[in-house]
Design a protein around this nucleic acid. Structure first.
Length: 826
RNA sequence: GCGGGAGUGGUGAAAUGGCAGACACGCAGGUCUUAGGAACCUGUGUCUUCGGACGUGCGGGUUCAAGUCCCGCCUCCCGCACCA
């Protein structure tokens, strides 16, 4: 061997060259093609949340795809037919805003970015099945959005109503409840206001109970945090509806309460100031003017102001009285903004003694407070603190002496018997508002006819294509830009052929993502959104990977769609994602990266400096996948160092491929099989960082074996190097492929298969046991791993150190846990 | 306010109730070198009278044994936020 080649052997390997070398090879082999007709491997569906095509991939994408790839590539190595698809969530505001700025069709920007991201994903060695790609802005995709909309419409699950909706003045469109974050628009952070509009909704509230109860199936498989967030978001509460007669009016008013046991403690009555009921009660009375002034005032207050829970209570006495059905008392009726119009019935009985908000209002308005549950706490009249806990009922006639729960049961039974009320439940969840007054989305397939009213577009006429943007003013102005596409808008009514107009709103892009995972297995199907056969083969998704930002939006909507499709009979499962992994964010110096903050790390720069494998490795090794990664804390150059160390091993191996490992050095063989076993376990429990650590240990052990142990020719060295290449292929595919070739194998290492672990090699020859006295370590001894409790106890008690420590006294108790530990209680 | 999660070396982090700090980063020293931003080796929780002692946010408890389980605090992060 010449000095020159020796130098090359020991130089750090050229990652740029290796990357260029393998990409075309993989293009040819297509190691990750799924669902070939003759494929007999068991299936797995591993899914990464699809990206929004806004510019090139960034560090966050790199983190997510690196993690998804570990899982996907692992199952391929384990012999599964893995479908790991990708597509683009391509409709939406960023494209439209970019189009306005550049004065061109959003299609151009969108498809350009998709091409850029696709090329970057290939270079990043994402193990995607490229045959299944689609974009939600393709007519071939969104026609099925429209088709699904019509199926929901047929079943009364898509409907229009007038309502006060969330309005973003920045985006000039309405927003779903889920898209309002702390009173601000999720997209642009503008303060959201209310607007009365007629809009399309999906009736997700019909599914509230199932969305809640089916979460039982996800327990332990989804992050507890996401389940908690969904539970809170749905917010089921149990209580009762109670009818209150109104003095001087023929119709009673129904209220909702979770505490019907406190009915005798009601001292006033409140209706939501912005409800129709309040307007009706005020109409024609002497307080009408005062009420209207109050209403104007609270309408002007933004949601932000409303968020301050400690702001003083306000309201107007409406001059009317409600009659308490249990004792006939006259309760003054107030209008206030602390009662919400769209929750429950928009009216409440106020029990200030046992509800803090009612108490705050009572104190502000000098209204009486009556205790009806003795909780053992101090009088709310004096402390100003309502007592909401359990206790014994007082001042409540037939309920006196009962505990809270008993009283609730008894009063509900009584109310039902008397026809004055009934048990009821309520949800925080509201119906999903799906109309948007913007251009770049799926057109709603409804025609409005002067004669026939609302008429659905016929299924055979789908897709209802979005008109070209040319000639349309896309600038946000509060009504859909589609309204100006007169040729498109004016149509013949599908029913009577008379003059009619298309609905000009587009669908929320969350509609697109609520079912896209069902489309991948059937992505080339032109006759239906997905075929039953494909669904039965691949779904549900075995492993979903994505950010926690979608904990309630996308994940709740997808669960809803799945349940609807289950009801329609298009699929036979009711939860779409069996397991969910939420990866953390990539931060820089403790905060999210942003241009304005000046802490943006460009993925392309990092890849150029350290190579794809080192960046992927750094992401995976930095810590548990759910935790955020602070890029300031990771060392990509350390990853480069490790990868070249591993790579050098493959050049040192001097035995031939196919050599029988059985004759190899036993201690290195044991290290190899332990690493394979531990790494496997770590990957399956999402501790990818630990899996990498096990590979590092094996690299270290192999280095030592070559330099100062059994030597490079020992078969165990080859076995170790091959195992390292295979394990590394999950994280560092280029390095692993290069190693595999240098070890004399044909590509691709991705399909090499996870080596069978030999259980007999997992047993160590000797293990170190500790001997404790009173829990403190006094001595360490080498023992056989198969030693019994009695044997190890005897060894411990006979050990000179222990004999000396005990100084002749008899131990009170000896706990032996062979082969690890003996604890002597002296 | 309500709900959830987390606090371990200089740093990122490991640890089925059983040896706290695996694996790395960083740092220090060394070997080889014309050179080192290469490679390799050694050391690296704190205190220490060099025997050891102490050590996982704080205070209690359960246990032969607690980073891990239980109770009460403190701090930080996330979600919801007048939902009756």
């Amino acid at each position: 061997m010449s000095t020159e080649s020796n130098d090359r052997e020991h130089a750090a390997y050229d990652f740029a060259h290796v990357q260029e070398k393998w990409l075309p090879v993989w293009d040819r082999i297509e190691p990750f093609k799924s669902g070939r007709a003759d494929d007999m491997r068991p299936k797995k569906y591993v899914l990464d949340m699809f990206p929004y095509p806004s510019g090139d991939l960034h560090m966050g994408h790199a983190e997510a795809y690196a993690l998804g790839d570990v899982i996907s590539r692992y199952w391929v190595q384990k012999g599964f037919n893995v479908m790991h698809p990708i597509g683009w969530d391509a409709f939406g505001l960023p494209a439209e805003n970019a189009a306005i700025k550049r004065n061109e069709d959003p299609r151009i920007w969108t498809y350009e970015n998709i091409a850029t991201q696709k090329a970057s994903m290939r270079r990043f060695a994402c193990s995607f099945d490229w045959d299944r790609v689609f974009n939600t802005c393709d007519p071939e995709y969104y026609r099925w959005n429209q088709w699904l909309f019509l199926q929901l419409y047929k079943r009364g699950l898509a409907y229009r109503k007038d309502s006060a909706v969330n309005w973003c003045p920045g985006c000039q469109t309405v927003l779903a409840n889920e898209q309002v974050v702390a009173g601000l628009c999720e997209r642009c952070d503008t303060a959201v206001t209310k607007k009365k509009l007629n809009q399309w909704y999906f009736k997700i509230t019909d599914y509230a109970d199932r969305l809640l109860d089916d979460m039982e199936q996800l327990e332990g498989k989804w992050p507890e945090k996401v389940l908690m967030m969904q539970r809170n978001w749905i917010g089921r509460s149990m209580g009762a509806n109670v009818k209150f007669a109104i003095d001087g009016l023929p119709e009673p008013v129904t209220i909702y309460t979770t505490r019907p046991d406190t009915l005798y403690g009601a001292t006033f009555f409140v209706v939501a100031a912005d409800s129709e009921l309040a307007a009706k009660l005020a109409a024609g009375t002497e307080v009408e003017k005062e009420f209207n002034e109050y209403l104007e005032k609270i309408k002007a207050a933004s949601d932000i102001d409303r968020l301050a829970t400690d702001r003083p209570k306000t309201g107007v006495f409406l001059g009317r009285y409600a009659i308490n059905p249990v004792n006939g008392e006259k309760l003054p009726i107030w209008a206030s903004d602390y009662v919400l119009a769209d929750y429950g019935t928009g009216a409440i009985m106020a029990v200030p003694a046992h509800d803090q908000r009612d108490l705050d209002f009572a104190r502000a308005m000098k209204l009486p407070v009556r205790v009806v549950v003795d909780t053992g706490e101090e009088d709310p009249n004096e402390t100003g603190i309502a007592t909401g806990g359990d206790g014994v009922l007082v001042n409540s006639q037939g309920l006196n002496g009962l505990k809270k729960e008993e009283a609730i049961q008894k009063i509900i039974a009584q109310l039902e018997k008397d026809g004055l009320g009934k048990a009821s439940r309520n949800y925080r969840l509201r119906d999903w508002l799906v109309s948007r007054q913007r251009y770049w989305g799926t057109p709603i397939p409804i025609v409005h006819c002067e004669k026939c009213g609302e008429v659905p577009v016929e299924e055979k006429d789908l897709p209802l294509q979005l008109p070209l943007a040319e000639g349309l003013d896309l600038k946000p102005k509060g009504t859909s830009p589609l309204g100006a596409a007169t040729d498109w808008v004016n149509v013949a009514c599908p029913k009577c052929a008379g003059p009619a107009k298309r609905d000009t709103d587009t669908m929320d892009t969350f509609v697109d993502s609520s079912w896209y995972f069902l489309r991948y297995p059937s992505s080339t199907n032109h006759d239906e959104p997905f075929s039953r056969k494909d669904i039965d083969t691949w779904l549900p998704v075995d492993q979903y990977v994505g950010g926690v930002t979608h904990a309630i939006l996308h994940l709740l909507y997808s669960r809803f769609f799945t349940k609807v499709l289950n009801d329609i009979g298009m699929l036979d499962f009711n939860e779409p994602f069996t397991r969910l992994l939420n990866q953390g964010m990539v931060l820089m110096d403790g905060s999210a990266m942003s241009k304005s903050r000046g802490n943006l790390v460009r993925l392309s720069d990092e890849l150029a400096h350290h190579g794809v494998d080192a960046i992927r490795l750094s992401m995976v090794f930095s810590g548990p996948p759910e935790d955020d990664v602070d890029w300031a804390d990771v060392s990509p150059s350390g990853s480069v160092k490790f990868l070249s160390r591993a790579w050098r091993l493959s050049g040192d191996v001097s035995s031939a491929p196919g050599v029988d490992f059985k004759s190899g050095d036993l201690s290195l063989r044991k290290a190899t099989h332990k690493a394979l076993n531990d790494a496997s376990f770590a990957v399956e429990s999402f501790r990818f960082n630990v899996a990498v650590a096990r590979v590092m240990e094996l690299v270290n052990a192999t280095r030592k074996a070559i330099d100062s142990g059994c030597g490079a020719a020992d078969p165990a060295v080859r076995e170790a190097a091959e195992a390292i290449a295979i394990m590394l292929s999950l994280v560092a595919p280029f390095t692993a492929e290069e190693m595999w070739e240098r070890l004399g194998h044909a590509p691709s290492v991705a399909l090499a298969g996870w080596p069978e672990v030999d259980a007999t090699l997992l047993v160590a020859d000797a293990v170190e046991a500790v001997i404790q006295i009173n829990g403190k370590i006094k001595e360490r001894i080498e023992v056989s791993p198969t030693i019994t409790d009695a044997e190890i106890e005897a060894l411990a008690l006979a050990h000179p150190t222990i004999v000396a420590e005990l100084a002749g006294s008899t131990p009170k108790k000896v706990i032996a846990r062979a082969p690890k530990l003996v604890n002597i209680v002296a």
